[in-house]
Computed example of a mutant assay.
Amino acid sequence: MLVSQAVSRKAEREASRSKWKAAASVVLSEYLVLALCVLYTLVMIPFVPEIVTVEVWQNILSDMMPLLIVCLGQTIVLIIAGIDLSVTAIISLTSVVGASIMTQSDGYLSGPLAAPAAMAAMLLVGAAIGLLNGFSITRLNMPAFMVTLATTTFFGGSAIWFTTFHSTTTSIYDLPDMFISIGDRDLAGVPIAVIIAVIAALIVHGVLAYTILGRWLYAVGENPRTAYVSGVPVRTTIMVAFVLSGMLAALASIVYTARLQTGTPILGERILLDVIGAVVIGGTSLFGGKGKVIWTVFGVLFLVLIDTTLKLLGASLFVIYVIKGSVILAAALLDTLRTRYLGVR
């Protein structure tokens, strides 16, 4: 009798454990966010029938591309357990720097080399700001949050000053067609912006998955002390992460500026919540050591999908921010649950 009761209790415990494992496998699945995208679309069809049209999905794809590029850089930084709040200022500053070089209204350069030189300058400025962030964090032992908060304030203000110095208006326009084509033209039927974003995503994926730098990034995020003892150049790895983040923010600025057809110091002003939120929603951990490019793609898709449907419903900006903020908070809480209580990294 006692033996049979013990066997019965053991069977119940095993059944309960298997249920928890099944639930955890769903929550921890890397395709969870993609499944939520599909579910969300199906739920919204009765309220927003336009969500299934080709035109709306073309707009979603168009909105995703520059946001995805800057989110790739944020993914790299979060993997090392850092954060980069300066990406929005980098987008704004590089936008006006590039525009001042190639504008056909008294720009620094003219002719066919103006646009390539301007884009190169934008990438260099982004890399320089990223290097400054990385140096301050690794050499001056300053927290990443405070460093990037300070640089976003400084360089955001510098973008406004730079614009007033180079233009009598609030933006720098009259950009060459060669540059504008990045935002509104196709190559073999595929938008150029999509090609740029896909190439950037493939490169970042390759770095994270197949290079020693990728292993270093994950090792630093897991435990910097252990990584250092194991021979990982922790300071260099952190600096490289922030440089890459700055360059990817500048690359996103190229796409944003080309779409807008003007350089403006407020270009990246409102997307910081989207940048961090999309990466966290995708599954990259705020605690470091965990993240994938495909997760970031899913997170960007989900956030842009929510934003698009709310706009189609005629929701106010306040409502959009509240809902997006709630979704991001839920993703952060889920990340905490997975990391601290389920022990998943």
Rank of each mutant, 00 (worst) to 15 (best):
I76E: 04
T236E: 10
P176R: 10
K292W: 06
V319N: 09
V87R: 02
V293P: 07
S95N: 03
T237C: 10
A118N: 07
L131P: 04
A331N: 07
L303F: 14
R235E: 14
V319W: 15
E222V: 04
T226C: 11
S62R: 13
A249V: 03
G183I: 05
T163A: 06
Q5M: 14
D186I: 04
A249D: 02
S62T: 07
A150M: 13
S29F: 08
A249P: 01
A127R: 02
I199S: 06
G214S: 12
P112H: 08
R225I: 12
L213K: 09
S158Q: 02
G82F: 00
S25A: 12
T284I: 07
M1E: 11
V33E: 08
V279R: 03
S18D: 13
G82K: 04
G299P: 09
S253D: 08
G325F: 04
A197L: 07
G98M: 07
V240M: 13
L42F: 14
A330Y: 12
S95P: 06
T257D: 05
I196D: 03
A24I: 11
G263Y: 02
F162R: 03
A193S: 13
S18K: 15
A193C: 04
A35I: 14
G231K: 14
I69D: 03
I276V: 15
Y108A: 15
G157S: 13
A150R: 05
V280R: 03
G206L: 11
K10W: 13
S18H: 08
V97C: 08
F179E: 01
V87W: 02
V327P: 09
Y341P: 05
S110D: 12
D274V: 02
F145H: 07
V194A: 07
G189S: 03
S105T: 13
R17V: 08
T170V: 10
R338D: 02
I266M: 10
R215I: 03
G283C: 11
I203E: 09
G299L: 13
I45W: 11
W57A: 03
F242H: 07
S95H: 10
W20K: 14
V204G: 01
V125W: 03
S100A: 15
Y228G: 10
I182T: 03
A278C: 12
S8F: 10
M122G: 00
S100D: 07
L303R: 05
L317I: 12
C37N: 13
K21Y: 08
Q261L: 05
L61V: 05
R225V: 12
A315N: 05
T94M: 07
G134Q: 00
L244E: 01
A89K: 04
A330C: 14
I192C: 09
P233V: 11
L124D: 04
V56W: 05
K324N: 13
R259N: 09
A128Q: 01
F179V: 04
F242P: 00
L334M: 15
T152Y: 00
L28G: 15
G231C: 09
L317P: 00
G98Q: 06
K324D: 05
T153N: 12
A99G: 04
A249G: 00
R9T: 08
S4P: 00
L329A: 15
G126T: 03
I254L: 06
E222Q: 11
